Amino acid sequence: MLLYKQKKNQPAKGGNRLLISITVLGSAGPIRFVVSEEEIVAAVIDTALKSYAREGRLPVLGSDLNNFLLYCSNAPSGALSPWDTIGSHGSRNFMLCKKPETEKVAADAARLSPTTIGRRGSGSWKSWLNKSLNLKDLLAL
Results as ranks from 00 to 15, higher is better:
D108G: 00
A75S: 14
P114T: 06
N130V: 05
I45T: 12
T23I: 02
R111A: 06
K131C: 02
T102C: 06
D137G: 05
T115N: 11
S81A: 14
L129C: 09
N67K: 06
L61F: 07
N9V: 02
S81P: 00
V105T: 07
Y71W: 14
E55Y: 07
V24C: 02
A106N: 06
S21G: 05
Y71C: 02
S73P: 03
P59V: 06
K7Q: 09
K50V: 01
R120M: 08
N66Y: 10
A106W: 07
S127G: 11
A140F: 09
T102Q: 07
P82A: 14
A79W: 09
T116N: 07
K99E: 13
L96P: 02
T116H: 08
N134D: 14
N9D: 15
R54Q: 12
N93Q: 12
V44M: 04
G78F: 12
G123C: 10
S124I: 10
S124V: 14
A43N: 11
G56W: 09
S63I: 03
G29K: 11
R119Y: 13
S63D: 07
I117G: 00
K8W: 01
L58Q: 15
L69S: 07
A48H: 03
I117R: 05
D46K: 11
K13F: 13
V35D: 00
I31M: 07
S127Q: 13
G118S: 13
S122K: 08
P30F: 09
R120D: 07
S27G: 04
L2W: 09
A75R: 13
K131G: 03
I31V: 13
V44H: 05
K126C: 04
K50T: 06
G87Y: 15
W128L: 13
L2Q: 11
K131Q: 12
C97P: 00
F68D: 01
G56I: 07
R120S: 04
L133W: 08
A109V: 11
G78T: 14
T23E: 10
T115I: 07
N16V: 11
S77T: 15
D137K: 15
K5T: 09
G29H: 13
G87L: 04
R119N: 08
D84Y: 09
K99Q: 14
S77N: 11
L25C: 05
T116M: 13
G90C: 08
I22V: 15
S122H: 11
K7P: 01
S91N: 08
G56H: 05
E37L: 04
A109N: 08
T23F: 12
P76V: 15
S124Y: 06
P76D: 15
W83C: 03
L133H: 09
L18K: 11
S81G: 03
D84G: 02
E101G: 00
S81Q: 10
T85K: 14
Q6Y: 03
N74P: 01
F33D: 01
L112M: 13
V105L: 10
L58G: 02
G118F: 09
K50P: 00
V44A: 05
G62K: 03
W128D: 05
P82V: 15
K136R: 12
S77V: 10
K98V: 02
W83L: 09
S113Q: 11
V60P: 01
E103G: 01
A140S: 09
E103P: 00
L133D: 13
S63K: 05
E39Y: 08
R54M: 02
P30G: 04
H89D: 04
P59E: 12
